[in-house]
């Protein structure tokens, strides 16, 4: 019996020590890992949309609570003013969710640019929504309040031929981020003020 207890104690101590060590390391690397994930997964798209900004949007980011979720926002500084904010939302595509980043100018509520981050659309067909800029170009300069729809649904966006469902997914994602943006606009502007100083 005493032997049993000794074994248990040894294993318990081993596990506790290693658990504690791992927790510490995870805590220490958490921010860096998050930054790396942003840099290599969303980073290229964000940098493309916010090209020419004088700051690093990946560093100048903030989070806001939205209901139960927490959303990340990326700040773009142009001409010394932090008035562009980028956020991500998802739309239903052909093969799964399509992640779209949209950048909005908070002064006039106009879309500065959009870009697809992650998707699982058919390679060579639906995947064009990411590579073919003719779709994302159409969103540039549109007011955020527009009901974004592809032409087949009675909207104003020209879908990529053969990829209507994927294009619809992108529109859905843009509508989703527009909703988030309108809902949190007050808080976003509050946060942006901190960057101006």
């Amino acid at each position: 019996m005493r032997e049993m207890i000794r074994l248990l104690v040894v294993i318990a101590v081993f596990s506790a020590v290693s658990g504690g060590l791992l927790a510490a390391i995870q805590k220490g690397t958490k921010d860096r890992i998050e930054y790396q994930q942003l840099k290599f997964v969303k980073g290229p798209t964000i940098q493309q949309i916010l090209e020419g900004s004088s700051n690093d949007p990946l560093v100048d980011r903030f989070k806001l609570p939205d209901g139960k979720e927490e959303r990340s926002f990326f700040v773009g500084v142009f001409d010394g003013k932090a008035n562009i904010v980028a956020l991500e939302a998802f739309g239903k595509g052909f093969g799964g969710d399509i992640g779209v980043i949209i950048a909005v100018n908070v002064e006039n509520d106009e879309i500065v640019g959009i870009g697809v981050t992650t998707h699982s659309e058919t390679p060579g067909v639906g995947s064009k929504v990411k590579t073919d800029t003719s779709l994302s170009e159409q969103f540039k300069g549109l007011p955020i309040k527009e009901p974004f729809k592809v032409k087949a649904d009675g909207g104003q966006i020209d879908a990529i031929s053969g990829a209507t469902v994927s294009s619809r997914g992108v529109c859905g994602a843009v509508v989703g981020s527009a909703e988030i943006y309108m809902r949190l606009k007050k808080d976003i502007i509050e946060k942006l003020k901190a960057f101006k100083t």
Binding site: V10, I11, F14, I25, T29, Q36, Q37
Partner: peptide, 27 residues
Amino acid sequence: QVRIACYIVVIATFVTVVELLMQAFAY
């Protein structure tokens, strides 16, 4: 009697350390 379990705990700890460090520095 419990050496294998202990070894695995030690090894798994170091592997997780490597995994975290690699995520942080060589994503």
